[in-house]
Design a binder for these strands. Structure first.
Length: 268
DNA sequence: GCGGAATGTAGAT
DNA sequence: TCTACCTTCCGCT
């Protein structure tokens, strides 16, 4: 369930469970057998995350670069690890815990310069100590829609389809507005809000974006049951009433992704 | 059991 | 703008 908050949380979880000691590594599925063999027995020294890219550092100076893609997962359990279930690309076992990686778009061994090259092609990440200035320079000069710009990892890194829909709703911005028509103050507010929302996402390990007055308890509505697990305004709520104004939430396909917005709350 | 969808991206056209 | 790909899960037959 991967947007940037998931990846930063995984970096943290891998660090607390495995960093500082030797790990066993294997590829039960077989697609990463060579890489796992090189890692097996090495000390996991640290982890890093930038946008949706996860890096696990090892004592020989190399890194495992993981990108979960649309449906990759990284799940933890207590040691000893049970027999693997399904297609486990990479299993890491420490003394107290294990982790299983399934379905990633990328799982590869890379060097430090190759890791740097990944950082270089990504935009600033609201969850790193980055500022949003570089993103603003791109956005403020672009005729592309703000919806597409927010998803472009070269512009800013870590935002996916849920945070995109939700942050535009929270700021009342029509997703189809061209980037260059955003005001500087609007961008600053979006960037700051993303940092807050995504930090909370790392902490809770899910995406919640509704304000206190729109929670299920406050509104007397049933809690949402969805696989991304959080309370949201518009994401995958097409046809349902907007939590703020009651108008019907719309959906449309934009660049092969589903976009969601409230036509009343988000105009201009 | 099958088809479709899913928080994503790279590469072809 | 499209297609392929990694995997799981849900709803439908």
């Amino acid at each position: 369930m991967p947007e940037g908050h998931t990846i930063h949380r995984l970096a943290l979880d891998c660090r607390t469970r495995f960093a500082g000691s030797a790990v066993r590594a294997s590829s039960p599925q077989g697609k990463f057998s060579d890489g796992a063999a090189l890692l097996d027995g090495q000390v996991l020294t640290g982890t890093d995350a930038h946008g949706k890219h996860l890096f696990l550092g090892f004592a020989d100076g190399g890194w495992v670069h993981v990108h979960l893609g649309l449906y990759g997962t990284f799940r933890f359990g207590d040691a000893p690890a049970p027999p693997p279930v399904g297609a486990v690309r990479l299993r890491i076992e420490g003394s107290g815990a294990y982790a299983d990686l399934r379905g990633p778009t990328a799982c590869e061994l890379i060097t430090e310069p190759e890791k740097q090259a990944v950082h270089d092609r990504l935009g600033p990440d609201p969850l790193r100590a980055d500022g949003g200035e570089r993103a603003w320079l791109r956005i403020s000069r672009s005729r592309t829609t703000v919806a597409a710009l927010l998803m472009d990892q070269k512009v800013l890194a870590g935002v996916g389809n849920v945070y995109r829909a939700e942050v535009l709703f929270r700021h009342g911005i029509d997703p189809r507005r061209p980037g260059r028509d955003l005001a500087r103050a609007e961008w600053d507010a979006i960037w700051d809000d993303l940092a807050v929302l995504m930090r909370e996402g790392v902490r809770a390990n899910r995406i919640d974006t509704v304000r206190p007055e729109h929670t299920p308890e406050a509104m007397g509505r049933p809690p949402r049951v969805d696989d991304h697990g959080g309370e949201v305004y518009v994401y995958r709520r097409a046809g349902q009433p907007c939590l703020v104004c009651g108008d019907e939430v719309r959906t449309a396909s934009l660049a092969a992704r589903n976009l969601f917005w409230c036509p009343t709350c988000q105009h201009g």
